[in-house]
Nucleic acid binder design. Structure first.
Length: 490
RNA sequence: GGUCUCUUGGCCGAGUGGCUAGGCAGUGGUCUGCAAAACCAUGUACGGCGGUUCGAAUCCGCCAGAGACCUCCA
């Protein structure tokens, strides 16, 4: 059976069979964070979505170059707005250097991505480290005739570009609609048309991040960095470009136009966009002031959070929804995810000690096919997970001896589940480091519980209950089993 | 205002023109001295009104509600 990997292409609004430009190799570019605030739940969505894609492509034996940028240029303006002299006169050292801000939040982002088990991309370029490339890109666009200079700034002429190129295709917009719907904004008089966007901007006096260029001391336009850096690391044409849906317009539309203007051909084969995380039905975003940071999720320190949620709970929560659907945050949804994830991981532990039989009563290949078919259908992780819960049922049934599995099948499915859950979905076992002190501690708890077994054997319920109750009050959870006990420290 | 999208059972969340998604909660059971945990089993659904069709929650139209983008945003 032919089972091809299909992905939804925003450009064509259809699912398409994925076929890389060069067989066996994939170039993908994803818009990373603008590092001016703590990483929040919204940042985790594209990171996890495209981490899944990255991992799955590697699982399919592609050699992948994954580029995810850090935007550290263009949006950073000195805090002292409104020309307040008192603030400006204060000692310079009391103000944060822009790069200090960038460093702080980049570190925060990386730390949280690690916790979420998001693999680092192959290359993580920073906009500030590619000013030269961006200036070159501006020059190329000027040479192509689709840009013009105005008062030291360079603007991209959308209407001129649209005369013999597509503009608006990605975001489904028409030039006429764009013209009639553009708002009146300040500082638009330099532009020939409100549709035009800056690719190089002359810096105002208060703008602290600035670089020399042939046109002015200034900084590159926001959309430009992605064109320049994707071209540099992936070539003029590459396979996949990803990002949040909110970036389709204007960012990606502009990027597409710039890249084509600079390179003469369309750059991206497949555009993929993840949907938003919502809070009470509204997009969660820093600018909306309703974003909950990942640090807060992991610590539980936020008025809206009933408790702390582990990074794996967040990861599981996201993968339980399709990446192109909005996903609504709530405590009950996260707690449901937490329990579901625990059940899945518990079954993975049970998997290690399954009894094998002569024959299998279960069809492990059918299971594997269903999981992979779901992934092949535009990364349908929720369906894949649904089938993995069938696997949970299967594992538990074999454990309870109501189903059987052959040794050969056992090795096969164990290997597949390990690969799929840990390498593709990126789940991790809960981190329980067994240091030597920990082992002694474990032995002591076992000792106490063995005493309890003896007490039980003697029908000394008072002692048995005392041991259990006291341990419980210390935060242990005691479970009696057929042949003994299990415990864990909550 | 323009463009587009969404509306699924107590909650989250898939999917499909006719065949049980799944998770959590609930209920019943197994296990247990009791309990907890675990495991097994299980119900309620597709915003409203029309239309197409042998058959629609799934396609079309209208209405209602919600959201996204149009400005920095994942």
């Amino acid at each position: 059976m032919e089972n091809q990997f299909v992905i939804y292409n925003t450009l064509t609004r259809k699912k398409e069979v994925f076929k890389p430009l060069i067989p066996g190799y994939v170039g993908m570019y994803v818009c990373g964070p603008t590092v001016y605030g703590n990483a929040h739940l919204g940042h985790a969505r594209p990171a996890i979505t495209f981490d899944l894609l990255f991992r799955y492509l590697k699982f399919l034996k592609y050699k992948v170059r994954y580029v995810r940028n850090i935007t550290d240029v263009g949006h950073l303006v000195a805090d002292a707005d409104e020309g307040e002299d008192k603030v400006a006169k204060k000692a310079k050292l009391e103000m944060l250097e822009p790069m200090e801000v960038v460093q702080m939040y980049t570190h925060d982002y990386h730390k949280n991505m690690d916790l979420l088990n998001v693999q680092p991309p192959s290359i993580e370029p920073r906009a500030s480290g590619h000013i030269i490339e961006q200036i070159e890109t501006v020059q190329k666009i000027l040479d192509s005739g689709y840009a013009y200079e105005s008062n030291g700034s360079i603007y991209f002429s959308v209407q001129k570009f649209a005369e013999n190129n597509e503009y608006g295709q990605l975001s489904g917009r028409k030039i006429e609609d764009l013209i009639s719907n553009t708002r009146e904004l300040d500082g638009q008089d330099e532009k020939n048309s409100p549709l035009d966007f800056a690719i190089w901007k002359k810096a105002q006096a208060e703008h602290i991040m600035r670089w020399p260029s042939p046109w002015s001391d200034g900084f590159p336009g926001w959309h430009l960095e992605c064109s320049a850096m994707s071209t540099k690391y992936l070539g003029k044409q590459f396979d996949i470009h990803g990002g949040g849906m909110d970036l389709t317009f204007p960012h990606h539309e502009a990027e597409m136009a710039q890249s084509k203007a600079a390179n003469g051909k369309p750059s991206v084969q497949y555009w993929m966009h993840n949907n938003m995380i919502t809070l009470d039905g509204q997009k969660m975003g820093k600018s909306l002031g309703n974003a909950i940071s990942l640090d807060q999720f992991f610590s539980g320190e936020h008025p809206l959070l009933e408790k702390a949620y582990s990074p794996m709970t967040i990861r599981f929560f996201m993968l339980q929804a399709h990446y192109r659907s909005t996903l609504d945050f709530s405590n009950s949804a996260l707690q449901a995810a937490e329990k579901g994830y625990a059940r899945l991981m518990k079954a993975m532990e049970t998997l290690e000690k399954l009894p094998v039989s002569e024959n299998s009563s279960v069809d492990i290949h059918a299971l594997q096919d269903k999981v992979l078919a779901a992934m092949n259908d535009d990364l349908n992780s929720p369906i894949a997970l649904a089938h993995l819960f069938d696997a949970v049922k299967m594992i538990n049934s074999i454990h309870d001896k109501t189903e059987t599995i052959s040794s050969k099948d056992y090795q096969y499915i164990k290997s597949f589940l390990h690969t799929f859950l840990y390498d593709v979905l990126g789940f991790q076992k809960s981190i329980g480091d067994a240091s030597s002190g920990q082992e002694v501690f474990n032995d002591v708890v076992d000792l106490l519980l063995n005493l309890r077994i003896e007490a039980k054997a003697n029908k000394d319920w008072a002692t048995a209950d005392k041991i259990r109750n006291e341990l419980t009050s210390l935060g242990f959870e005691i479970k009696d089993t057929k042949d003994g006990f299990e415990w864990e420290l909550k």
